[in-house]
Write a protein that binds this DNA or RNA. Structure first.
Lengths: 144, 144
DNA sequence: CTCCAATAGTTAGACATCTTACTATTAAAC
DNA sequence: GTTTAATAGTAAGATGTCTAACTATTGGAG
């Protein structure tokens, strides 16, 4: 086995495990609010970026269109978001945060920030930046 | 928002996206063989480490005990592994690779290595090692 | 020795997500 | 303009995974 293949394989395992472990830790508290990771992703996206269509959301949180329908359905049932038809192009539906949804995300997000920072505190600031940089190089369609 | 919180959040997003993107790319070819990622993980684990119990496998591939039962069921149905009762401690079941399973993994694994190395080729050797190191620091129960 | 706690595995039921096929709407080609 | 292709969203069905409750087996405390 070539050396590059070997270190790539080992790094793959570490990357996937680190990602799993971090994701589990930082999303655990969502259960207290009955939210899935995807539901939180939707609320967070429209809270920070404003209302957008379902397909935009799908791209944003990397889930299939069909799945987003279910996620939005469930958030809508609980009154955290609402669907608003776009009158200019009636194919589009804008997903809008309700007051109830805004209240919720404003409770959860500060906790989330703290938990994430805590989880990354085993790395120095330089290491966190470096890790982000390497992930950006490795990923596709990455945020800046 | 504190600076450390901010860079931690951004790095979290990059880590999860990179991991998703890489995982999708390097596991795509498994569908050609009708294998799920978990099924491949089981075959690969017992191919390289020898037969082990279901609970060992669960720890190894980071899935729940209950899920491993299903994964093993499906691999067994297709004749890639078999269950062998451990006679010394009858609570344990050893999962053993069959000849058919060995043939399969010996076809898939070399392809897998190549695909992974190819996927990491946007990074230099030093960067891959560095990424692995940072992930190891960040994760829990990480391989060396 | 007996009983209790821990461990390995299984089953049932729930849920998130995926793929595929479908409808509705818009844009583009001719 | 009419037809055709592309896009947004939905519905149906399948699958992978989870939690919780259960059985079987083993080890340890008294």
């Amino acid at each position: 086995m070539s050396k590059l293949e070997e270190i790539s394989l080992k790094t793959l395992v570490k990357l996937l495990r680190a990602s799993d472990s971090v994701s589990e830790d930082v999303h655990k508290h969502l259960k207290d609010y009955g939210l899935t990771v995807s539901q939180f992703g939707v609320l967070e996206a429209i809270y920070h970026l404003g209302s957008m269509s379902q397909s935009d959301i799908a791209k944003k949180i990397l889930k299939s269109e069909a799945n987003i329908v279910t996620v939005i359905d469930n958030l809508e049932k609980r009154g955290f978001i609402k669907r608003v038809k776009n009158e200019k192009d009636r194919r589009y539906i804008n997903i809008v945060l309700t007051d109830k949804g805004k209240t919720l995300i404003e409770i959860i997000f500060p906790q989330h920030k703290k938990i994430v920072a805590e989880r990354f505190s085993c790395l120095s600031e330089e290491e966190i930046l470096l890790l982000g940089d390497l992930c950006r190089k490795l990923g596709k369609n990455m945020p800046k």
